[in-house]
Amino acid sequence: MDQLLQHLINALILGGTYALLGIGLTMIFGIMNVVNFTHGELYTFGAYMLFFVVMVLGLNFFVSLAVAVVLGIILGAAIEFTLLRPIRGANIDTTMLVMIGAWIVMQNSEQWIWSGIAKSVSTPFPSDPLVFGPISVSYYRVFVFAAAILLIVGAHMLIHRTKLGKAMRATFQDSDTAALMGININRIYTATFALGSGLAAAAGALLAPVFVVTPTMGNIAALKAFAIVILGGLGNFKGATIGGFILALVEEFGAGYISSGYRDAMGFLLIIAVLLFRPTGLFKQAERIG
């Protein structure tokens, strides 16, 4: 029973960041129809930026988190502006190849700049964990969870309560009609890509102190993000949120009670099952919001 509770807490906390990763990717796919292979690299970028600002420049940890996210948004906008805008309207294979190229370039640049040796980031949180009877969890992980939930709610509000969000949803439904209604489609695309990238950078920055920062840390994160997006249905915001938590639960309990060696396989077994029985994802098409 103690073990069950501990696994549950672990899964909840992990799920928050999984959801964050999934949402960013699903937004970009849903609205822009771009399979964003640089997603994992933006995650890595966020982590390195946090490392740079906290450990090299020595700024306050919370300020640094915000700086890392803002830099992620800027990098995302730059990628959209320089790589995607010139090939707007090209078929999905072309954009995929461009994004794969960008992914390789970004990963190798990280390797070149930071070297392969892992970096670690310290936080102002106490290193002793919070202990409730048999369960313990570090203060920082609780903070990560809270921050992730805050960001998810924030992104949700942005899409549903703001004019920009309305324009995004309109573009998702029918970009031609949206353009005819006076929406600047190019600006919406850049904003979407920048926002999705910012969420990935936020996930990377939040997790940097939990893990260690390496140039290849984004690969596994990207893989998980793709899994979550497939689980929740392509372009489905709520689906990605719930999908993130489902993947974390399946992995955690699969590793805890079946076999830890197959931890990462559990998630993919689930995806195969979803693709076989509900190929559009676990959630209804109509719920999609972009």
Binding site: H7, N10, L14, L207, V210, F211, T216, M217, N219, I220, E251, E252, F253, A255, G256, S259, S260, G261, R263, D264
Partner: peptide
């Protein structure tokens, strides 16, 4: 066991 690239080992 843990996958060589695994980062979250809390389950194990």
């Amino acid at each position: 066991t843990m996958d060589a690239s695994a980062q979250d080992l809390s389950a194990q």
